[in-house]
Simulated scan of single mutants.
Amino acid sequence: MNLIPMTVQGAERLREELQRLKTEDRPRIIQAIAEAREHGDLKENAEYHAAREQQGFCEGRIQEIEAKLGAAQVIDITKIPNQGKVIFGATVTLYNTSTDKEVVYRIVGDDEADIKQQLISVNSPLARALIGKMVDDSARVVTPTGEVEYEVVQVEYL
């Protein structure tokens, strides 16, 4: 079984979602199914079919989260000595040499990635180019608009 790298925060968010699904959403859906059954004929009962569909999505998501947490390799970056090297979980400040702008990204697991929050997947082209680099190293990334060069300005293990 392949382990899925995940930050401590990402694992915690999945646990919170799993808890919510099991303690809030599942009972609400079961109640909705029971109420819809009371309306009679199930063949033409739209509320019943909608509630059953919700139940399927909810149970599927519960299984998906449990599988991910079961295969998770939770990495606590704060327990690793910072040697200035870009690794999974690191927060990296980059200087884009073509735009003269600095950007900050955190390298996280696939399920945690959210570019709007500056969280990039460890499997993204940028993260793959950065892994193993040190402060002051350059990384070239091929993008749809061409090649972009970044310089590693700072590496933090937060």
Rank of each mutant, 00 (worst) to 15 (best):
T143R: 04
I65M: 06
T93M: 00
A72V: 10
E156P: 01
R37A: 11
T23Q: 12
E102N: 10
K79S: 13
E12G: 05
Q73V: 03
A90Q: 03
E147G: 09
G40T: 04
E38V: 04
L130G: 12
S98K: 10
A34P: 10
H49C: 05
G89A: 03
I33V: 15
I120G: 10
E44D: 14
E47A: 12
D76L: 02
L158I: 13
H39C: 00
D25T: 13
P5D: 12
P27R: 03
I29N: 05
A71F: 07
D114S: 08
V8T: 11
E102P: 01
E44V: 12
H49M: 11
E59F: 09
N96I: 06
L18I: 00
D25L: 06
V104M: 12
S98Y: 01
T23P: 09
L119S: 07
Q19I: 06
D25P: 00
E149F: 09
Q118G: 10
L119W: 10
T145C: 00
Y48F: 14
A46Q: 14
I80S: 01
H49P: 00
Q117N: 15
R15Y: 13
F57K: 15
D136Q: 13
V8F: 06
V104H: 01
G84L: 09
E12M: 07
T93C: 01
P27Q: 02
T7R: 08
Y157G: 01
R26D: 06
Q54A: 15
D111S: 09
Q154E: 15
P125T: 12
M134T: 13
L119R: 14
V122M: 02
N123E: 14
D76M: 07
V92N: 04
E38C: 05
Q19E: 13
E64S: 14
N123C: 11
Q73A: 14
D25C: 02
V74P: 00
E112F: 04
T91F: 00
C58Q: 11
I65Y: 11
T145Q: 12
H39T: 08
E44W: 04
I120H: 01
G109S: 07
K85A: 10
A113D: 03
K101N: 15
